[in-house]
């Protein structure tokens, strides 16, 4: 489903973020990328959702090389990708419902469709009763659940999570990982980037990243 072939990424200041990275994600897999801060985990995710372009190499989404995708096509690609961030990236002036609904608004969904899908997703992540709350009144774990709800409300092909538990305590971390597992069981491919190797224990597919190079897999 996603394949990176000999990808290099060097920033304008000369810093090498990725060196000859090749990896493959099949449909329905739950994959971890682990590595310390600055190892290049976020760069890999950014290359997949086209926030950055590789200096060299190919990034295939299906059979399309997104490294060469036209700028105007990027929004349409992103509609197939759900993204979850460490800092949640929720809009403070919107309620939980409105934050989740935004992902459907931007693709021009009808109000009926938005209502139906948002309620269903909020039930799935366990926030049905918090739909009218503003993010500021929620715990970190709840905010991350809202972010996950927003990422999956569109039924994306893949969910990318960049340090999704980085700001959470151990109990909430387990909750979020369980939720990501549930999403994966429903058929969505999940790619989690984390610095915490404990999260990836007992997982079948783990890529370890160090100084921009994949050291296993």
């Amino acid at each position: 489903m996603i394949q990176m072939l000999h990808v290099h990424k060097t920033y304008s200041n000369g810093q090498k973020a990725l060196i000859d990275v090749s990896l493959k994600l099949d449909k329905g897999e739950f994959v971890y990328i682990i590595g310390p801060c600055g190892a290049g985990k976020t760069s890999i995710l950014k290359l997949i959702y086209c926030a950055q372009r590789p200096t060299k190499g190919m990034v295939l989404f299906g059979d399309k090389n997104v490294a060469r995708i036209r700028k105007s096509r990027i929004p349409y690609l992103r509609r197939n990708i759900g993204i979850v961030f460490q800092d949640f990236k929720l809009i403070k002036t919107r309620t939980v419902f409105e934050n989740v609904a935004l992902a459907l608004e931007v693709i021009g969904a009808t109000i009926t469709d938005i209502q139906k899908k948002v309620w269903k997703t909020l039930s799935f992540v366990g926030l049905y009763n918090k739909s009218n709350e503003y993010p500021i009144r929620l715990s970190g774990g709840e905010q991350q659940r809202v972010a996950i709800a927003r990422a999956m409300v569109n039924n994306p092909l893949i969910l990318l999570a960049d340090e999704p538990t980085g700001n959470l305590d151990p109990e909430m971390t387990v909750d979020i990982i369980d939720l990501l597992d549930k999403i994966n069981i429903r058929g969505t491919t999940v790619l989690v980037a984390t610095h915490n190797p404990d999260l990836a224990k007992n997982k079948r597919k783990v890529f370890t990243l160090e100084k921009g190079r994949i050291t296993n897999g």
Binding site: Y49, P75, K89, I91, T93, L102, A103, V106, A151
Partner: peptide, 16 residues
């Protein structure tokens, strides 16, 4: 800015 950045990340076109 934050809101617009998020909109871009979840697939909003520049037109939208």
């Amino acid at each position: 800015k934050e809101e617009l950045e998020i909109m871009k990340l979840i697939g909003a076109t520049d037109f939208f």
